[in-house]
């Protein structure tokens, strides 16, 4: 029993390492330039054994996006569950997004450079927004609460979602290209204020 548990734990740990390594390589070199043998080499494991964990590169990429979505979704959920005015919630969401871009740059890079750019990789298995469901659900809850409390304007979900997330994605992209004169953190206040002004109820 204990032995079995130990084996399962070891397997989960190994799986996690594979996801981490793949994330790093995908974010750095893109989906197509990254190969399974290369990952296996970095992980010091055989190609055959790696396939035991993930039977294709596509499935691995899908698992990565699910984990990123769960990670960001979980952090936004904490904000949703706190009793805060919408203005402050927006500031916290922006902060989390930028912090993630700073501390886990591969996550955001993967999202922008693989998930959004190589849609064909995600067509089967990640239809629509299934693989980013946890993240999108929390954003929906954030909007729903904001409209219910009278702080946000009631409008089409995607108009609001695009404004919020497109803006943040754009800033992280500019930062990645080293175009921004200041650090991302220094933009938090202005950007949060702009988002709030754009979405608030009149």
């Amino acid at each position: 029993m204990i032995k079995e548990q130990h084996r399962a734990e070891k397997k989960a740990k190994r799986r996690n390492e594979i996801v981490r390594t793949a994330l790093k390589l995908f974010a750095e070199k893109g989906f197509y330039a990254t190969t399974i043998p290369e990952m296996a080499r970095d992980l010091k494991m055989s190609v055959g054994n790696l396939y035991n964990y993930f039977s294709s590169k596509e499935l691995l990429a899908q698992e990565i996006i699910r984990e990123i979505s769960a990670y960001l979704g979980g952090r936004i959920r904490e904000i949703n569950e706190a009793e805060l005015p919408v203005r402050e919630k927006i500031r916290r969401i922006v902060t989390i997004y930028f912090e993630t871009a700073r501390d886990e740059p591969e996550m955001i890079d993967f999202f922008l450079r693989v998930y959004l750019s190589n849609r064909e990789v995600f067509h089967e298995g990640c239809e629509g927004m299934i693989c980013v469901n946890e993240f999108v659900t929390e954003i929906m809850i954030f909007f729903d609460d904001g409209v219910a409390s009278g702080e946000l304007k009631n409008q089409d979900f995607f108009s609001a979602f695009g404004l919020f997330m497109g803006y943040l994605g754009g800033m992280v992209f500019l930062n990645g290209e080293h175009i921004l004169p200041k650090t991302l953190e220094e933009y938090v206040d202005d950007i949060s204020e702009n988002i709030y002004n754009a979405l608030k109820a009149s």
Binding site: N133, T137, M140, I141, F143, D144, V147, A148, N154, F157
Partner: peptide, 19 residues
């Protein structure tokens, strides 16, 4: 409210419904 029905099926939590 932003595309989400203001009343959801009886007893279904919002997070579960949205997912």
């Amino acid at each position: 409210r932003m595309g989400i029905p203001a009343r959801l099926p009886l007893g279904v939590p919002r997070r579960a419904y949205l997912s």
